[in-house]
Simulated scan of single mutants.
Amino acid sequence: MEAFAEYLDGIGNPEHRARVEEVFAWVKEKFPELVPKLAWNQPMFTDHDTFIIGFSVSKQHMAVAPERAGMNYFADEIVQAGHDHTKELVRFKWNRPFDYGLLEKMIEFNIHDKADCTTFWRK
């Protein structure tokens, strides 16, 4: 994905970079209507110019940010799956298989919940 090329180039660990590329490719294949965008140095996917899901990386994990509404909606499932999290993001550890099922649910929730949203972020 051209929109994320510079971001991906900045990921020093080749295994982490491969995982991130795999996740981005999965999102694009599963949700071809979403538009990849790099904003605030954060790779994200948008729908009708509204934020759907964002990503970031650190030494220990890949973080996924569905906005607070998504975090609240999936709070119990995130805990049950054993993912570390904050009020704004879920941390997917590098040493565990990536939880595509949860990611898919978060994206579907935001697409549906923000279908009539006319702003980038929820108000």
Rank of each mutant, 00 (worst) to 15 (best):
G12W: 00
N13V: 04
P14C: 00
H16V: 09
R19S: 04
E21S: 11
E22R: 14
F24N: 06
F24E: 07
F24M: 07
V27E: 04
K28M: 12
K28T: 10
E29N: 11
E29Q: 12
K30S: 10
L34D: 09
V35C: 06
P36V: 11
P36R: 11
P36G: 14
K37V: 10
K37M: 14
K37N: 11
L38W: 10
L38T: 10
L38P: 05
A39T: 09
N41S: 14
N41W: 01
N41F: 04
Q42V: 11
Q42W: 02
P43W: 08
M44T: 06
T46Y: 07
T46K: 07
D47F: 15
D47C: 14
D47R: 13
T50V: 12
F51E: 02
F51L: 12
I52L: 13
G54I: 04
V57T: 15
S58P: 11
S58N: 10
S58V: 08
S58W: 02
K59A: 12
Q60S: 10
Q60L: 08
H61W: 06
A63Q: 03
A65F: 07
A65T: 14
A65Y: 12
A65D: 12
P66R: 02
P66V: 00
R68P: 00
N72M: 11
N72S: 13
Y73L: 07
Y73K: 14
F74G: 04
A75I: 00
E77A: 15
I78K: 12
V79I: 13
H83C: 08
H85E: 07
H85K: 15
K87F: 05
L89S: 08
V90S: 06
V90C: 13
R91T: 04
F92M: 13
K93W: 01
W94V: 07
W94S: 10
N95T: 10
R96L: 05
R96K: 14
P97W: 04
Y100K: 00
G101S: 08
G101L: 01
L102S: 06
E104S: 09
E104L: 02
